[in-house]
Design a protein around this nucleic acid. Structure first.
Lengths: 226, 226
DNA sequence: AGCAGGAATTAAGACTTTGTTAAGTGATCA
DNA sequence: TGATCACTTAACAAAGTCTTAATTCCTGCT
C-alpha cells in the first residue's frame, strides 16, 4: 500500500515533534513547516494528501495559509485540517469558509488524532479511485495482471469473460445494456449473435456464483456488490 | 434551492428543542427521534441528507445505531455526525469505525454547529452530483442501477413500469397526458391500447401505494410528492 | 334513478427476452 | 497434428413482461 503523505504546519517545534513521531509510527510520510510561507512552498513540491495546519501562527495564520493552499491546482484534492486550541471557536467558522475539511482540537491526543486522520484519508481514497486494480464485494480484479481473485482463489478468465466482468465491475450496481456491452467489448462494427453475451454471462456465473451478476430484463446486466 | 433534511437523534428533549430551533431558523428541514430504533425507522422514510446522532443514549447507543444506518442502501450518501460530550474520546474512535463522518462536541454552540453542518453538507454536495439519481418524496429512483428505493426497500421494477415512474417523477406534480406518456415510453409510432397505461399504473400503485400516483380524469396522471 | 365517459381491476394469453445445452469453428501450442 | 481452449451459434426451454379484453367501478350530469 502506498504511503500517504502528510504536511504538518505549526510554529511550535514540540508539537511538530509529537505529531511527527506518532504519525510516522503509523506509517505515514511526514514533512513539516513552521510557518505559512514555507508550508506553501513545501506543499508545491511534496504534494501531500493531507495538510494539518495550525491556526495560530505568527506572520501568516492558518486561515490565510489555507486560502492560498487552496489556490494551488496540485492540491485540489488534498485534505486540509486545522489544529485549533479549545475556545478558538471563531476559527472553526472562518476555517471552513477558507476551504478546510475538518479541524482538530488541541491539546492533541495521539489516539484521537490518528483515528481522525484515518477517517479523513479514507474519505479521500473513496473520492479518488485507483485504476488497474479494483476490489468490490469480495472480488478483486487486477487488470494489469489479468487476474481475478474470488474467495481467495485466483481465477484465470478467458479474455472475453474477463473484459465483461471488468466492465460490469467498473461501475458496480450500474446496469449495462447489451448494446453498450457489445460496443465496448466487441467494438462498434463487429456483429455477434444475441445469445453470445448470455453465454459469457453464464460462464461467469458458473465461476462466480449466480448472485453476483444480475439480469435486468429488457435492459441489460449489472454487477451486484454484496 | 432544495431544503436539506436533517435527522436529529438524542434522548434529551431539551437538546432536541435547542438544535431543532436553531436549524429550522437556518432553513433546514428537521425530524427528530429519541432513540436508535425510532431513528432507523424514521431514516428509511425521511431519507435525510445529514444525521446528527447522540452517542450516549439508553438501550441502543449512537455507535450501534450508526452501524445499522450505514447498512441502509438509501442512506448510502447520507452524512452521519456524532454528538458527543467532551471527554468521551473513546467514542470518536469507535465512531469513525462505525462509519461516522464527523463528530461534534457538546455543549452545542449554535453558531459553531451551523457552520459545521454547512461544511458537512457542502462536502456532501460535492460528493454527489451524480446524474441519473433522483430523490423525490422519499422515493429514490436510480436510472443507472435501474433501481427504486421506497421506504428503505429496493424495488426491481420491470422496464415499462420503471420508465413510467421515471417519467412521472421527472416533473413531480406535473400532469402527463396519456398521449405524452405513450409518445415518450412507447414511441410515436407504436400503437398499444388505451388500457395498457392503466395496467402499468396499477402495478406501480400496487408496489408504491395508492397515494403516490394521482389520476386526473380526462387528462392523465401525475406523481404526487408527499 | 339512469346514463355516459373515463378509469380500475383482473386474469388469460401473446410475445419478448434470457437461460441452457451442445455442437461447430478456429486458433494456439506442444 | 492432435488436444485443448476460447468463442460463437443454433435450437429449444424457461422466465418474465406486456397487452388485451371483459367487466366493474366511479363521477358528474340530466
Amino acid at each position: 500500500m502506498k504511503k500517504e503523505k502528510i504536511l504538518l504546519v505549526d510554529d511550535e517545534p514540540d508539537i511538530i515533534d509529537l505529531i511527527t513521531y506518532n504519525l510516522e509510527k503509523e506509517g505515514y510520510e511526514i514533512q513539516s513547516a513552521t510557518n505559512g510561507r514555507d508550508a506553501i512552498e513545501m506543499a508545491k513540491r511534496f504534494v501531500p494528501d493531507l495538510i494539518l495546519l495550525d491556526v495560530m501562527m505568527p506572520e501568516m495564520d492558518g486561515i490565510e495559509t489555507c486560502v492560498e493552499l487552496r489556490e494551488q491546482d496540485s492540491l485540489r484534492n488534498a485534505i486540509i485540517a486545522f489544529l485549533t486550541a479549545r475556545g478558538e471557536d471563531y476559527s472553526q467558522i472562518a476555517g471552513f469558509d477558507a476551504g478546510a475539511d475538518d479541524y482538530i482540537s488541541k491539546p492533541i491526543k495521539p489516539r484521537v488524532l490518528i483515528s481522525r486522520i484515518q477517517a479523513l484519508l479514507r474519505r479521500k481514497v473513496q473520492a479518488e479511485e485507483v485504476p488497474g486494480l479494483e476490489e468490490v464485494g469480495g472480488i478483486i480484479i487486477d487488470k494489469e495482471k489479468y487476474l481475478v481473485i474470488f474467495q481467495g482463489k485466483e481465477l484465470n478468465l478467458p479474455k472475453k469473460e474477463f473484459e465483461l466482468l471488468a466492465l460490469l465491475m467498473s461501475k458496480p450496481g450500474r446496469v449495462f445494456t447489451r448494446e453498450i456491452i457489445l460496443n465496448t467489448i466487441w467494438g462498434n462494427d463487429v456483429v455477434v449473435g444475441d445469445r453470445t453475451i448470455d453465454v459469457h454471462i453464464r460462464k461467469l456465473r458458473e465461476k462466480l456464483g449466480d448472485k453476483i451478476i444480475k439480469t435486468v430484463k429488457g435492459v441489460g446486466y449489472k454487477f451486484e456488490p454484496r
